[in-house]
Design a protein around this nucleic acid. Structure first.
Lengths: 157, 157
DNA sequence: ACAAATAGGTCAATTATATTGTCCTAATAA
DNA sequence: TTATTAGGACAATATAATTGACCTATTTGT
């Protein structure tokens, strides 16, 4: 067991512990709304890609449509998201946050942004860029990544 | 929505996508052993802290003892871990990997180490250090972190 | 010696998250 | 007009986690 291997074992541990801390605060905050982490993820990605269709959201989250359906309905019933039949094809439903949904999503993501911003600022230098570079290599293999590569906030056809 | 906020929203997305890629390969590898991610985490931490007690492992994983008990029993039944009553207090059970457990843990962690190593090496510079610095800030608030701060591989009393 | 505390195990009920499979409607395309 | 597609719904199942209650064995403190 050489030193490099030990360092990399620490990296694996840090990934586990780090992600846990990252998700901790929003998990606590959403409890009182009667929703869970999966709902937070949905709110987050609808906020990033307003007007996204159900199928495209599925490919970002990489879950089955049955897994998405229930939390989506719950968010609708809690008036946190809107569904609009697309003009260009009425089979498609486009998903948007309601004002209430925008408010909640913004609160949740704000906490995480501040958490990361504080860390990047306290470490200074090029820590933020370096961290992003590393995570980008991991993230780029995800199918949902395609929605965030370029300037396609809505859809292009 | 200024540029900094957009950059930080990307950071949140990268954390989700990145962690997903990080856990993907071991998840697939352990399928054929009939175990899941929770078992991998247990194997990983027993490998890092051989002789750890059940209670200490609980505090690292931050789950209830009921949540740990079943997967621990399954790993024992599959001959991947050993349990030894501690010399210093027979109430304590010390956990160790069997040779088979060491073999499997080493395969799983090897894949993740290589994945991260490849990324760090390809990006070069101080990317590895910077990434570790950032994750260390997040990880240090975890209670289980105490087992990895200094030179206490076993226990000190 | 005996009561209290500790480490750990077990059983039950519940919740959340996810899967696959099947079947359905509505809308569009060939 | 048939086939395909987007989406929804229901059922059965699996995994992962919770809280609560109760049990044994061991050690500690009085």
């Amino acid at each position: 067991m050489n030193e490099e291997e030990q360092q990399l074992n620490k990296v694996l541990m840090l990934f586990y512990f780090g992600y846990r801390t990252f998700t901790e605060k929003p998990d606590q905050m959403i409890e009182k709304y009667g929703i869970q982490r999966v709902h937070h993820r949905i709110l987050f990605f609808i906020a990033r890609v307003p007007g996204i269709t159900v199928n495209d959201l599925l490919s970002i989250l990489e879950v089955s449509k049955q897994a998405l359906n229930a939390p989506l309905r719950q968010l609708y019933e809690k008036n946190l998201i809107k569904m609009v039949h697309a003009d260009y094809d009425k089979r498609f439903k486009q998903l948007y946050l309601t004002d209430q949904g925008k408010q909640l999503e913004s609160e949740l993501s704000h906490v995480q942004r501040e958490q990361m911003k504080t860390i990047f600022n306290s470490l200074g230098g090029n820590h933020q860029e370096a961290w992003i570079d590393v995570m980008n290599v991991l993230a780029k293999v995800r199918p949902g990544q395609q929605f965030f590569n370029e300037q396609n906030g809505e859809r292009c056809d």
